[in-house]
Amino acid sequence: MNARAIAVLLTALFTAAAAVSWTFPPRARVYPMWVAIVGAALAALTWLRAPRSETVSGPTLSEIARYLWWIGALLVTTGILGLPTASALFAAAFLKHEGKAGPGASVGAAIATGVGLLVLGAALDLRWPPALIDVTRLLGLS
């Protein structure tokens, strides 16, 4: 997605926000409506000024998609096993597959991540997302 396409999308979003704001009660309406109108005008201006074809630098969506799947997998595992356990598994798997680390380093990273999170959680009274089978809670570790 290049700058022009984003400008078109933003113009549409600001316009929609302005239209939705119109339905709000007067005291809730003025600020978002005017911000949206100004935003739509600025985004349209950017759209008109953006070159038709602009070279975009950096990695492509297909190159980062793999890592988005990793993060998605971490979130799903967190929902099932709880954050400390999911993080430990994630660290080991990621280091093994993406970091090309040896099995010893991967297991060490898993233990360090899990234990580190539990210690940090206890010290700072942190909360973890609720999970279907919270392994650390079942083991009485959190």
């Binding site: 979130l75 954050l83 660290a91 680390a101 991540t113």
Partner: peptide, 30 residues
Amino acid sequence: AARLAPFLLVIMLVGAYQSTRSWGDLIAFL
């Protein structure tokens, strides 16, 4: 980055989750 990222991502998820302590924090972050 491939050796640092898993730890950073975990720390960021932990940090993000402490905002309102709901799943919405993690989804919004992503």
